[in-house]
């Protein structure tokens, strides 16, 4: 497991904070499943975050104007 994965408590904090920021109501019934899924995503995301990328690497999608 990546060394900087979040703890369960940290995942819960992340879920609660971001849900509040997005005005996304999470009932007590929904919350455990969301936390579990976020834990899974977090582990995968950390493997991406820990990979060193050259600073000049841009995000893959490129904005292009439609032909005039």
């Amino acid at each position: 497991m990546p060394s900087n994965s979040l703890s369960r408590k940290e995942v819960e904090t992340l879920v609660d904070a971001n849900a509040a920021a997005l005005a996304l109501p999470l009932t007590e019934a929904l919350r455990p499943g969301v936390v579990e899924n976020m834990s899974r995503i977090c582990t995968l995301a950390q493997s991406v975050m820990e990979f060193p990328l050259p600073a000049e690497t841009e995000p893959a999608p490129v904005f292009i104007h439609a032909p005039g």
């Binding site: 996304l24 499943g33 969301v34 899924n37 899974r40 975050m49 990328l53 690497t57």
Partner: peptide, 25 residues
Amino acid sequence: TRDRFLAGALIPAAWYIQAQRFRSW
């Protein structure tokens, strides 16, 4: 799908952007 979409909606921007940059690499 519900809990997966809910969790996905809450993903920090840094994770998403880094994933798109990794995609270029």
